[in-house]
Each structure stands twice: as structure tokens, then as C-alpha cells.
Computed example of a mutant assay.
Amino acid sequence: MSAMSFVVMHLTRPLFTAKWLTASLLVLSLAGCSVLGGSNTQQQEPAPDLPELTQKAAEQMVASNPDITRYSPMIAATFVSIDNLSQSSTLGRISSELMASALGRQGMQVREVKMRDSMFIEESVGELILSRQVQRLSAQHDARSILMGTYAQGQDYIYVSARVVRSSDAMVLGSADFRLALNNNTRSLLEGQGGW
């Protein structure tokens, strides 16, 4: 009996065929699982973090009003909680710093001032008014504009609204809004609540 005849004879046996078929199906199903599993294990692109978001917000402000940089120098006020405008947090302080840096990279001249008692108040109609302290500091540092902002905590996100206003009359020169995922990192920034 030739080797070829032996192989053909054994391949045609029902028992061998059933085992071979079962083994083949098992190998194919495992290969399919690894292909499917491979696509599920691809890492998702991480959500943008605060420096990226403030950079995009600054770019948006300047794109919507290229003349904004003419209102230099600018001073930055700490961003405050929308629920209590006399309260801020580590998040509010770092958001203001990052936003001022981002605007500086867009051509805005930024004066470094730590504005301890400066804030803005909100009237019942929602119009933003500069406090006397902010106006005094603007005059003292010869600032033509002021960076201000508020933030609000939601269930899944923190919403930040930033604006640059003209110091002489509180006219909004540029604004940008963004949201930040609420996670352990951002919660820890919010826990650093405190006054100015």
C-alpha cells in the first residue's frame, strides 16, 4: 500500500474526519476570538486634560476676536464657583493660571498679579460687573483687560466658562467654554475649596 493510499484511506474514515473537523473548528474559533479580542483591547484615546482644554479655549478666543491681543496687558483673576462667587478651589486657581499661560502663547501680554481680594459679582440680571478692587488693581498695573472665569460641578463633568473683559467698561472681548471629566483627579482639585 502506498503512502498516498494510506492517507486517503485514513482521511475518509468517519472517526478521523469528525476529530479533524472538531479540531479545525476549535482552532478557527480561537483565532476568531483573538481577532475580536484584539479590537476590544485597543486603548481608547484619553480624554483631553485641563492644559489641553485651556489651550484650545485660548485659541478659540483669539480666533473669534483677533484684536483681543490689542487689549494687553492682561491680568488674571482666579476662576470661582458659579454657586458662590466668593469661593474658589485648586481647580479655579490652576484653571486661571493655565488659561493665562495659554493666552500668553497666543500673543496676549500677561501681567503676573496674585489678586488676593479681587473678584467679580453677579447682579440678578446676570450682568457681570467688576468689583472696585479689580478696577483698582487694573489701574495700578495698567491692565487693559482681565481674565475671569467660573466653573460648575455636574454629575459627570465640570463646566468651565472663561472670558476676557475690557477693564474700562467690563465689555466682553472674548469667551470660551469647555467641560472637564469629573474623575478622582478633578475631584481632588475641587476639594481644595477656599476663599481667595
Rank of each mutant, 00 (worst) to 15 (best):
D156S: 14
I94R: 14
T186A: 11
Q155T: 10
E97F: 06
G92K: 08
H141E: 06
S175T: 05
S168M: 11
Y159T: 09
K114E: 15
L103I: 03
E123Q: 13
A100G: 08
E123S: 14
G104Y: 12
A152H: 06
R179D: 08
L103G: 08
N184I: 00
I158S: 07
S96T: 03
V164L: 15
R132T: 04
E122K: 11
D177S: 11
S95Y: 03
N185K: 13
E112S: 12
R166S: 05
F178R: 09
D156C: 04
S161L: 09
R166E: 12
E123V: 00
M119G: 04
S161H: 12
E127W: 02
L189F: 10
E123K: 11
M115G: 05
A181S: 10
R93D: 09
N184V: 01
L182V: 01
R116V: 10
D142L: 13
A139T: 04
Q133L: 12
I121D: 13
V134P: 02
G107K: 10
Q109M: 14
A181F: 01
V172W: 06
D177N: 15
M148P: 00
V125K: 15
E97R: 14
L98A: 11
F178G: 04
I129Y: 13
D117E: 15
V125T: 12
D156M: 10
